[in-house]
């Protein structure tokens, strides 16, 4: 439904590199990656471990800084942002979903979402966000009382509750079985289509790529291939 050629550019990435100094060796996580992400687009980042997917996503999310290159979010350069700019950026513009959910164990589902809505501009109500991921019945449960899939859906509700412009998901189904994973992916797809949130999903599961508008293949710190799906599949149609 979203053409790559249409809409506004959300991320503009040019020749991005990232080098980690691990003791006496340098690890080149990114060796000059360039791409663009458009408004409302859903992309999947595919690649083996160490290919640089997470590094790329972390830099896009303002969690990490690049060694060289250029990243702009809606025309604002992230590569030159201060610590405070990056915090504000994460606070008001980005939604995150992680492999290990990263919920606050001492807060209920509703409160875990409220953690974000309390500090965001014009957020949804926590109940609304949890309804979007089908958790209306589990509002007052603590993480310890929820299954893995439910915990991940709370994390998605938390990520979307601020009405973010971008949703960044790092292996959102990595810790889940396929049945539960599918429910989580459906929730992500619903957010993308209903709210028009630009979404980037990291996975090493090739099958998930079928639900994307575009698939970015990474290997060895470089973008090796970009493919477009003419028709996005719904997660229900994906088997793995």
């Amino acid at each position: 439904m979203n053409d790559t050629g249409n809409g506004k550019i959300v991320f503009h990435v040019e020749n991005l590199t990232k080098t980690y100094h691990m003791g006496e060796v340098d690890v080149h996580a990114l060796r000059g990656a360039s791409l663009e992400l458009m408004e409302g687009e859903l992309i999947v980042l595919l690649g083996p471990s160490g290919s640089g997917k997470s590094t790329l996503l972390n830099i896009l999310g303002g969690l990490d800084t690049a060694t060289s290159g250029y990243v702009a979010y809606r025309g604002r350069e992230l590569t030159r942002a201060t610590e405070k700019d990056l915090t504000d950026y994460r606070r008001y513009h980005v939604g995150f979903v992680f492999q290990f959910y990263n919920l606050i164990p001492s807060l209920t589902a509703r409160e875990n979402v409220a953690v974000v809505t309390e500090i965001a501009r014009a957020p949804m109500k926590p109940e609304e966000a949890l309804a979007l991921v089908g958790l209306t019945e589990r509002l007052d449960h603590f993480p310890s009382q929820l299954s893995g899939g439910e915990q991940q859906r709370v994390a998605i509700a938390r990520a979307i509750s601020k009405n973010p412009q971008v949703l960044l998901c790092d292996e959102p189904t990595g810790a889940l079985d396929s049945q539960t994973g599918m429910v989580v992916l459906e929730a992500l797809e619903r957010v993308n289509t209903q709210l028009g949130t630009a979404t980037a999903i990291i996975t090493h599961n090739v099958d998930i790529a079928a639900m994307a508008d575009r698939v970015i293949h990474l290997s060895n710190g470089r973008i090796s291939e970009v493919t477009s799906n003419a028709q996005r599949k719904s997660p229900r149609e994906i088997q793995w």
């Binding site: 999310g61 405070k84 915090t87 994460r90 995150f96 919920l103 606050i104 953690v115 974000v116 938390r158």
Partner: peptide
């Protein structure tokens, strides 16, 4: 630190 780190990722400031 994991919990607090998660909150930082969600946009909480150091002070918060």
């Amino acid at each position: 630190s994991r919990e607090l780190g998660s909150l930082r990722v969600l946009g909480y400031t150091r002070g918060e």
